[in-house]
Design a binder for these strands. Sequence first.
DNA 1: GCTTGACCTCAAGTTGGCTTGAAGTCGTAC
DNA 2: GTACGACTTCAAGCCAACTTGAGGTCAAGC
Lengths: 149, 149
Amino acid sequence: MGMMDIGEVAERSGVPPSTLRYYEEVGLIRSISRHGLRRQFDADVLLTLSLIELGKTAGFSLTEIAGMFGKDGRPDIPRDQLRAKADDLQRQMLDLRVLRDALRHVAECPAPSHLECPTFRKLLKAATRRRIPRSRSRIGHQGGQRPGK
Amino acid sequence: MGMMDIGEVAERSGVPPSTLRYYEEVGLIRSISRHGLRRQFDADVLLTLSLIELGKTAGFSLTEIAGMFGKDGRPDIPRDQLRAKADDLQRQMLDLRVLRDALRHVAECPAPSHLECPTFRKLLKAATRRRIPRSRSRIGHQGGQRPGK
DNA sequence: GCTTGACCTCAAGTTGGCTTGAAGTCGTAC
DNA sequence: GTACGACTTCAAGCCAACTTGAGGTCAAGC
């Protein structure tokens, strides 16, 4: 039960085989052997995949994710940089909160154009004040976000 | 002081002119007139731009952002969809929290491979349990996130 | 032993979000 | 009145992150 073939991984993780092959190609995951031609993965790959999904949700590029945890869960990045990343995430959570509040506001407020609504402007301005010159790349294509969006 | 030309907008917002033109092309912002050939923007564009940045940080595509607020701050989306988006954000904040904790853990934990560390696995599994079949696109993307840096 | 179907490889295509480059247009300062 | 430099347009290019397609392989079931 330690080994699963690519189809099973795909089904269990929801990540399509083409993507799994791609992830392997770029070194994010590793297949442990072959059964005929078929890739066999260790069950741990599922955990790695959730880590990747998590990182993508947070707006990191695949390269950044690879760097954070390394392909075997071994980080390539010095501790203080990791802490800095964690702090970035903290800030990003605040941004999300603002956006969430903004959306909730838009959903309730009857003003025709929200840019004219004082409450809305206040929400945004508070966020803007706090904002830092973005260090992180484009998000997606991040990239590419999304990537990836 | 209501009007700024594109250069000033670029400088104040940190968004390059090429991007501003692109945003206008896709309908995210609007120039109010021209001075010669030069686009002139209403000062409100700065607020719209922070809204866009906020949305990108949250991993939305430009299209989604446009839909949420409309190009004049008029949302094109029914209220309950907006609320649903807000709830998505809420969930995303939880994801960020997990990732943040994971990073902090990686920064401190001496285990050589974190996938073997029980604490780490627990963190991830908790997140995995909670996860929902992703409705959202890429991120990042870019890729951003795209990501394309 | 042959068919089936899920896998394989490799190259090319796609999408989103921009950026770059060439060639041209203006308003302002001199 | 001309030189400058910041703008303009338009087409093409670029990167990330995949997906698609053509053509091939292989093990398991019949």
